[in-house]
Amino acid sequence: FHVTIHVGDITFHIHGVSEEEVKKLEELVRRGADWREIKKTIEEIEK
C-alpha cells in the first residue's frame, strides 16, 4: 500500500506498507497520536 498521513502541517508519505501496518497507523491517527509517535512508527515500518 501507499499511505499518506497528514498531521497538522506535516505530511508523511510511506510506500510498501502492509495491510497490518496500515491498520496500526490508522489506529494511531484515530487516537490522536502526535506526529513524533507517528514518525517513530513509520521509521519502524520502513526498516
Rank of each mutant, 00 (worst) to 15 (best):
K47E: 09
K40T: 09
R31D: 12
K47G: 10
S18H: 06
I5C: 02
G32P: 03
F12Q: 01
I14S: 02
I38Y: 02
E27I: 05
E27P: 00
I5T: 01
I5R: 00
R31I: 10
I5P: 00
G16I: 10
H6W: 11
I14P: 00
L28R: 01
E46C: 12
I5Q: 00
K40M: 09
K39I: 14
H15N: 11
L28F: 03
T41R: 11
I5H: 01
E20M: 12
T4F: 07
E43P: 01
I14E: 00
E21P: 01
V22D: 01
E26F: 14
G32I: 01
E44C: 03
H13N: 11
E20F: 12
G32H: 04
H13T: 11
D34K: 04
H13V: 13
H2D: 14
H2N: 15
V7M: 13
R31C: 10
G16Q: 07
L28Q: 04
R36D: 15
E19I: 14
T4M: 09
D9N: 13
A33C: 05
I42Y: 02
H2Y: 10
T11P: 03
F12V: 09
K40G: 05
E20K: 10
K24W: 10
I38L: 05
T4E: 08
L25D: 00
K47T: 09
D34R: 03
G16D: 12
V29R: 03
F1Q: 12
K24M: 14
K47A: 14
I45D: 01
E43H: 05
H13Y: 13
I38T: 01
I14F: 08
E20H: 12
T11R: 05
I14A: 06
D9G: 12
H2R: 10
H15E: 12
I5Y: 03
H15G: 09
D9V: 09
E43L: 07
E21H: 15
A33M: 03
F1H: 12
K40E: 12
H6Y: 09
D9M: 09
E19W: 15
G8C: 08
V22Y: 15
L25A: 00
R36I: 11
S18I: 04
E37T: 06
E46Q: 13
A33I: 03
V29S: 04
F12H: 04
L25F: 05
T11L: 08
I38E: 00
E27G: 06
H13I: 13
E44I: 04
E27W: 05
L25K: 00
V7E: 02
W35R: 01
E19V: 11
V17H: 02
I42G: 00
I14N: 01
D9I: 07
K39L: 14
V17Q: 02
K39G: 05
T11A: 07
V22F: 14
R31S: 14
V3L: 13
E37W: 02
